[in-house]
Design a protein around this nucleic acid. Sequence first.
DNA 1: GTCAAGCATTTGTCCGGACATACTTACGTA
DNA 2: TACGTAAGTATGTCCGGACAAATGCTTGAC
Lengths: 254, 254
Amino acid sequence: MNNSWYDAAVPLPVIDVDRSSPIPLYFQVAEQLERAITEGRLAPGDRIDNEITMAQQLGLSRPTMRQAIQVLVDKGLVVRKRGVGTQVVHGQIRRSIELTSLYDDLVRAGSVPETTVLSFERSTIDAGSEELVQLPDGTEVWRFERLRTVGGKPLALLYNVVPVSVADLSSASLDKSGLYQALRSAGVHLRVADQQISARGATTREARLLEERKGAPLLTMRRTAYDDEGRIVEFGSHVYRPELYSFQMTLVDR
Amino acid sequence: MNNSWYDAAVPLPVIDVDRSSPIPLYFQVAEQLERAITEGRLAPGDRIDNEITMAQQLGLSRPTMRQAIQVLVDKGLVVRKRGVGTQVVHGQIRRSIELTSLYDDLVRAGSVPETTVLSFERSTIDAGSEELVQLPDGTEVWRFERLRTVGGKPLALLYNVVPVSVADLSSASLDKSGLYQALRSAGVHLRVADQQISARGATTREARLLEERKGAPLLTMRRTAYDDEGRIVEFGSHVYRPELYSFQMTLVDR
DNA sequence: GTCAAGCATTTGTCCGGACATACTTACGTA
DNA sequence: TACGTAAGTATGTCCGGACAAATGCTTGAC
């Protein structure tokens, strides 16, 4: 792989721009370039034609072309350098820092996750509630715990709290799909989440449910998710078996 | 905290735009808005004035104003809604998905990390080298291991491999600062990294160095970093004591 | 009181343009 | 042959503008 910036730009893969599509033009271009990269037709080290030339070839304006490339920059697929050009730096997309659920990710990875709802109840927040949940006393919430398995093997134990006012959840809906899918179906626009990843030993109960020994290392994740109005829509506290799951992400310099 | 979108926009905090500064205008505005958010002068739920009004007040164009706001959107600090406006959704910035080193993060958090270089050697990649390192046989590399402590307590054990062609490293430079700072000083432009976070039990040696018991859960991180020419500049394999460190991040829906 | 239509508000998308800046290349000179 | 300078290349920044689309509010009709 020749990584030099000074290679001639490779021929641009064929890009169709459909002005009758409701999908924004910049987005169409970004998607097709991304597909060319992930399919190897644009390889790491290849230089993309300059902005002005590409824009002219596609019948777009330079700001629109720049916006399309910016999408790829944000995903860490290309880098730009003033006076030099734009180069492909990566052919692989890892789990990016998108706000997704474990269920979303497993399905995307081609697994068939199965969910067992271990408990599901409606209760009220009071002063004695656990510190995971930062909601005012008196708030009605759903509390539920699920066991997620893949290929018959227990993978994760998921404990969540969702304000009743956010969505009308049920044990049945959680059995069928992931929490985030249920929330989206209820019209919730998930927007931002704070997440904390750490590790600790399995408790006796967790060990039993996850088919591990007591004290075995578990990967832990705590999350507080917000909707597009800044409301807290979910608290989550999960533990995962590290042999079966890890967090993978692409970090990008800004 | 009133989360309604329909609140009147709060008075815009004072923002100075210095056209004589080499810092881009959009960046100056973004930084000052971010500071207002993290300092609580703009609170979650507050609505920011519309783009056109803010641009006029600051003597900027609308695209420049939009670019400033986009920086905040990318960090998950605000959300925009067509026909409604821009609202602050977050007052806290967690360790974002920027490509930084542990040293960078600890310093930013106000800690004074100390580094002990346990080993430092130059060697050549051959077929028997560990699978962490995907470099061609024959590549000259620096291999080194460091123990990082904070407040006298061991925090992490860091094993890294860096191609000799990337930077001329030394034990001394690694003692003084973090690896990424040493690389930047050597003119390396770090751009993208793939990272994998998981957990496992401590080995006997790790337990001794980290003052843990053997088998204690450790948080692990493996990373492959690339420069802006797509070259691999670093492999890292780290283990952390979960009582003293966790990965915190803000996830944003795209 | 309810519903629909129209209008207002605000962001989203796209455009053309200009100048600045960083990097590379080529050429001239010592 | 080496170095410095100028020109070329490409991205970065900023601007003004126009139209589209989504959301909310107001008003009028039923």
